[in-house]
Each structure stands twice: as C-alpha cells, then as structure tokens.
Design a protein around this nucleic acid. Sequence first.
DNA 1: ACCTGAACACCGTTCAAGT
DNA 2: ACCTGAACACCGTTCAAGT
Lengths: 200, 200
Amino acid sequence: MATSAARRQEPLSRQRVVAASMELARERGLDGVTMRALAAELDVTPMAVYYHVRNKDELVALVAESVLEDASPLSLADAGWETALRDHLLALWETLAKYPGLSSYMINLPTLGTTESSYAKGARFFEEAGFPPRLAKLAWSFALTFIHGRLSVDAKLDRSAARAAGLDTIAAREHVVFGVDAIIAGLKGMLGEGSDADHA
Amino acid sequence: MATSAARRQEPLSRQRVVAASMELARERGLDGVTMRALAAELDVTPMAVYYHVRNKDELVALVAESVLEDASPLSLADAGWETALRDHLLALWETLAKYPGLSSYMINLPTLGTTESSYAKGARFFEEAGFPPRLAKLAWSFALTFIHGRLSVDAKLDRSAARAAGLDTIAAREHVVFGVDAIIAGLKGMLGEGSDADHA
DNA sequence: ACCTGAACACCGTTCAAGT
DNA sequence: ACCTGAACACCGTTCAAGT
C-alpha cells in the first residue's frame, strides 16, 4: 500500500513480473499466482502482464528457471559423487520447498521444469561419476523425479492442518533423506553392473 | 447419442458417477473430467452429481480408489520381495498410465491417493520382507512417490506431440524400469544396513 | 512500445426451488 | 429423496482500443 505509488513509477519488465511471481509463490503458493493477483501486486491490469510474457505456462517456466539458479550447482567434489549428489538433492529440496506447489507444476513438464542445458548438466555429472551416457540421463531423471514427487506430496499437506501440527514437516524431511539415501545406494548398485561393458 | 435415452432410465448413483468419471479420465484425461462434462455424459444437470458426491476432490479420490482396486495386489511371493515388488510397481504403472493425469492428482494427496488401509498393506509387505516398521513405511512411500512422479512427467507429454512421435512412450517405459530397478537395488542396500539392529 | 477495458469461454460450487 | 435452474466467484485469455 505504501509502496504502491513507488512501484507504479518503475516501468513493468519481464524481470519485475518474474520477481513478483516468485514472491507470490513463496507467500501464497503457486496456486496463489494468478494473473489477476500478480497484476494487483504490480499495480497494473492483468493484461499488462501478457505484454511481457506469452502466457502463464511461460511465466511459471521462468519462475522455475529462476528458482533453480538460486539452488547450489551440482558438481563433482573430492568427496565422491555420492556425497555431492546427496548434498545437492537435499539443498534442491530445501530451496524448492520455499515455493509450495512449484514442484507439482514442474513434475508435469517434459524436462521436469529445468532448461535443457541445466538438464544436460545433471546428466554430465553422472557421466563424470562413471555412468555410461544413457544410464547417466536415466539416473538424473530418476533423482529429479523423486525430489519433485516428494515435494508434491508435501505441497498440499502443509497448507492445511499439518502446518499447525508441526511434526509433519519433520516427517517430510525423513522421507526425503530416506529417499535420497536409497537413490544413492540404488545408483551405486546400477553403476557396479551397468558400467562393466563400458569400462572393460 | 443412441444410448442416451436408455441411460436416462436408470437412476443416477454413486457407482454410475464414478464409472462415468473413469471412462472420461481414460478417454480425455483427468483434466477432461469436469463436473459439466461428467453431467453431460450422464444426461444430467451438473448439480445432480453433487447429490451423490460431496465435491470434486471426493470424486477423484473415489476414482483413484477404484482404479487401484483393478491393479494387482502387492503380496510376498516365493520368488522374494524384489521380484514381487518389481512386478507390482510395473503393473501399477501400466494401470495408472491408462488414466492420464490421475497420478498428477494423487501425488498431491497426503497418502498418495491411496486409502489408509491400502497404504498400510504396502507397508506390511516391506515388514514381511524384513524391514523394520519405520523403514517399511518409508520404503513404500518412496516407491509410490517415484511411480506417481514418473507418471506425472509423462501425463502432459503424450497429450501433445509425443504421442504422434511414438518413440517417447518407449522412453517412458525405460525410465520406469530403470527407476524400479534402482529402487529395489537401493532398498536392498538399506535393508542390509538398517535391519542389523532389529535382527541381531 | 506499452498498457487499459470489456468481453469470452471456461471452471467448481451455493442456494432456492421444483417433483 | 433426487434432481433442476439460475447465479456467484473465480480462472486464463482474446481482441480492440487507447497513449
């Protein structure tokens, strides 16, 4: 209210639209990011947004891209791919958890809401870890699918009665940690079998 | 069209509402199951449906329950829990794949769209396989999350250009098979470590 | 180039009324 | 008990028009 006059001064831009969308997503969840609510936040008509963004799908894709940039990059460390992957997936989970409903949307997209280059980067990580190209892609998709799946399960949960209860968010973390550890153990097993043909 | 007169004869019932919803979900995906489309299919006013079902959430929950009943039950076979789990998860994937968008909905529910009793049955399977109670619940949730996650990734995909291409459905199966194998390998690893304390 | 205003085609759902 | 009709409060989006 106090800043609405100031906000009106600066011209609308793609960046401001995305930034406002992220703020809305954090506070009300992605369901709260409607074109009308977004426009109100920007002190503008709903249709003004369409000048900077083709449609809502493109907008959410931009939001997803922007959120992922804030997450820690996945890169092979000295400690080995297992701990690097573990740290990255848990950090990714924590970052995305701040935007309720975003994963529910991303999991419905072909490349799980990532850009192609970012998706390829994940696959490269597994190649460097010793996975043959095809398995590397499958492994990365496998890990991402679980993380987004888990976030989807929690998304609608903490909006209702669970947030008041308090202990369900602890349970949520247990689920992720268990899943990530199981994923790593599983991929380790797949690497032992699958890479023989390539590393002989 | 030809059967609309006949359909009008039989009184509307909860069963008929659910059955028609399932048919619509198979043909047009869950997005096509609107109260209005459903009512049209039943030769009835949209509000007539509300007499037999509280709201759309309850309706979809009933559809999910009904679809899961058609899937093969998860039970420990002679061949060991690994193959039993593998067969069940792949069969579950195939069944749910017939209802595009259903998993995208189920993955947003607390118990992943299953009834509590059906959820407990999955956990019991892992207990019988040798997992301690807490790990058994986590393991079942882990497996279900991936299956629904994978189906969500494919849901929007085969609706657009991918179905025409034809080879993306093959890729989809590869992803599931890889994931299921990795899950089993991972859980096998977790069982080796985690069960020591309980089986000593 | 950038934004507004009015309107369209959808949703799920409530409420009062009919039989 | 079972269903209809009209209406409400939302969506995303198109289209023509303003500056």
